[in-house]
Design a protein around this nucleic acid. Structure first.
Lengths: 244, 244
DNA sequence: CTGGATCCCTCACGATACTG
DNA sequence: CAGTATCGTGAGGGATCCAG
């Protein structure tokens, strides 16, 4: 299988040989959130055929981006996790996510949203400088996905599940998040992206009914400030582009 | 053709739908260096089938990343150039190139090097803070590729061809580069990457004979200082990885 | 139940030839 | 020069089956 080579001695060409195949970067996205089991990956990617997931994981492992680890007894489960080299894709993945989000438009009918895509969106749009001095826990509900974000003085921690769930990543040693109740619960309709991009204000979203809050009302303000996405490019209409 | 959709409402998924197909990011790489004609792109990508190049350009244009422009008479040639949105991939492409370059290894037998890949490598590894106060022009020869880099107080300008050639990008208004002779000409063997990654010093390269200089000898020092690549990851040997 | 492997089918990609 | 046309191949999609 020398078919995926470009035959160029170039860092970018090599990078694309490593992560350019279909599905690969989405697998990396989910593994950047945390180590996962085969079936968890399946759940997060939904439409991926199992043979493709299997093949991708093998390639990623062979290329040194992913490590397959068998947990010690009694769990003896298989988990896939990124190596250090794989984890260094983090900033690139987040930047690509921001870039792509700017032309996402509104969700298509059968588009689905996964916990890891929400967590990644939060990580990608988080602005530490806007979060200094803050300390709050917000629970986000998008469709049937529940994600909790803890903002603690410029540091974001996010995990799947409600605020009371302890994030079992187990490498955050400050397990001070003792079953703390969230400061607010935001239930968000299909327009989370529009709010992050500040195309609509949280106030408008509240009025539209696409956003519901319980708990601290001011928590809505963090959308668009603590989490923010640069504005979308002005799209060209009928070939007439707005630049140059 | 709804086959390229992932069915996820996610910025990264959308980004990969836009630029994740084979060859696409290499086309973007070359267009980031400057607008190009169809045949110039072919020359820079070499192994790309013309129907694929054609299809990719159509998609990129439809998606608002590329603009096809017919130059005014009497040239009336067709050029492809990135839109503003397309150009915003610059940092991402450079970061991906750096990431990939770290596991590039040494060139394979039939790997080829193109001017745009060299220029991109220079842009990706350029460190402005290491170039303040400098003002020099260096001509690089890698194989039969000739590229000239002008370093002017923290600003890099690079173009294909020898130093006397004026870069006809025409949007650099300071055309003060009047047929200036280069301060040095570096002829480099297959180990440019190793020098940028500081796996070997320019001195070693000179001793090896993989590097030849004419003109100002100190110009060799800019490789590894003004242009530098972070070290490669320690590769795992037989599944035994050096971390955690 | 997890963690895949296997099979078949289709379509996107690749190679090459050819044209306005 | 700037592509289009044609056709073969192999990777991806989808369902099913199997071992621990």
């Amino acid at each position: 299988m020398g078919q995926r080579r470009y035959g160029q001695y170039c860092g970018l060409a090599h990078a694309v040989e490593l992560v350019g195949e279909r599905w690969t970067l989405l697998i990396v996205r989910d593994l950047l959130v945390g180590p996962k089991r085969f079936t968890e990956l399946r759940r997060g990617l939904v439409r991926i055929p199992t043979n493709i997931l299997s093949a991708r994981l093998k390639r990623l492992e062979a290329d040194g981006l992913v490590r397959r680890r068998v947990l010690p007894r009694p769990a003896s489960a298989v988990v896939y996790e990124l190596t250090e080299y794989g984890r260094e894709l983090d900033e690139i993945v987040l930047a690509l996510g921001r870039w792509g989000a700017r032309t996402l438009g509104d969700p298509h009918e059968d588009d689905l949203v996964t916990p890891d895509s929400i967590i990644t969106a939060l990580r990608a749009t988080f602005r530490p400088e806007a979060a200094v001095g803050l300390d709050l826990i917000v629970e986000l509900r998008v469709g049937d996905v529940v994600v909790t974000a803890r903002i603690n003085d410029g540091v974001l921690t996010a995990w799947e599940g409600s605020a009371s769930d302890t994030s079992d990543t187990s490498d955050t040693e400050d397990t001070t998040d003792t079953t703390r109740t969230p400061d607010a619960v935001l239930t968000i309709g299909p327009r989370l992206r529009a709010m992050l991009a500040r195309e609509i204000t949280p106030a408008q979203a509240l009025a539209e009914g696409t956003l519901t809050v319980s708990g601290e009302p001011s928590a809505t303000d963090i959308l668009g400030t603590v989490f923010a996405l640069d504005p979308s490019p002005t799209r060209s209409l009928a070939g007439l582009d707005s630049e140059r």
